[in-house]
């Protein structure tokens, strides 16, 4: 039986369309099961890093200075004079600015004026990760919100997404604002976004983050998933605040008030 050219083309067209559909369908099914597997992996995670900062213990200017410079020196964070466009991974700010949704009318002057250390909260439900179009920022299995500076396209969407002001765009060439370089760590370049990475490189090698080490006991670091860990103990024994809990981001940096 012979088929006409027209009919042949028709049949071939359907065949082609079917193939494309099944291939893309397969991709999606494949991705779905992958995502499910990923969820399983996350829920069975044994480690979820968290930090507790004892705001009562930070008294003098130098208490802050030591911690901040330990981080900034180690990570080659530039010192940019333009305060609206500076880069900072961990910094000092007031209670009113750090916790703007807290009730502040009748609280003690001490807390109202108390400076706080602010940094990336490594949210359990991070908006920055949700909005990044290239997965340059992503959540590791141990809960650290990572930033891949090789991948970042500099769209700054994550900075619109982050409700904590923890992300920094390189508005200026960073090397020009570094007096001394730490040869063990890279700098960044113009046009990428950077932030605190919870010292993942030190954790992976079994060391504590620089800031925690330099704070000499004023900051705690540990595994939130382990009920017997020190951070869990400190959290349960003290009055604790996190920044903007109403947004549902579930921060993993806690403050003892």
């Amino acid at each position: 039986m012979s088929i006409k050219r027209r009919e042949f083309l028709k049949i071939a067209g359907y065949g082609l369309a079917g193939t494309i559909l099944s291939i893309t369908g397969g991709v999606f099914v494949g991705r779905g099961s992958e995502i499910l597997k990923g969820l399983e992996r996350v829920s069975s995670t044994k480690v979820k890093w968290a930090m507790v900062i004892d705001s009562r213990a930070f008294k003098s200017e130098s208490d802050f200075e030591v911690v901040i410079s330990a981080c900034h020196k180690a990570h080659n964070v530039p010192d940019i004079p333009d305060k609206n466009r500076e880069v900072k991974w961990i910094w000092k700010d007031t209670f009113m600015r750090g916790f703007p949704s807290a009730e502040t009318r009748f609280i003690s002057e001490d807390i109202k004026k108390r400076p706080f250390l602010l940094l990336c909260n490594h949210c359990d439900n991070p908006p920055c990760v949700r909005v990044c179009p290239v997965k340059a920022t992503f959540k590791r299995e141990d809960g650290i919100v990572m930033q891949d500076m090789h991948r970042c396209i500099g769209c700054k969407f994550c900075m619109a997404g982050c409700p904590y002001g923890a992300r920094n765009y390189n508005f200026y060439p960073p090397r020009e604002y570094l007096k001394a370089l730490n040869p063990e760590f890279p700098t960044r370049t113009l046009g990428v976004v950077e932030k605190c990475i919870f010292c993942y490189h030190r954790l992976d090698e079994g060391l504590l983050p620089y800031c925690v080490e330099a704070s000499q006991g004023k900051m705690y670091f540990g595994n939130l998933a382990d009920p017997n860990s020190e951070v869990r103990r400190v959290i349960s024994e003290n009055i604790i605040m996190v920044r903007k809990p109403e947004l549902g981001t579930n921060p993993k940096v806690f403050y003892i008030i």
């Binding site: 179009p133 290239v134 340059a136 991948r151 396209i153 500099g154 769209c155 765009y169 046009g191 990428v192």
Partner: peptide
Amino acid sequence: VVMGQPSRVFYV
């Protein structure tokens, strides 16, 4: 034009 790393745009 707002991208900080325009050469990486196709990463999207």
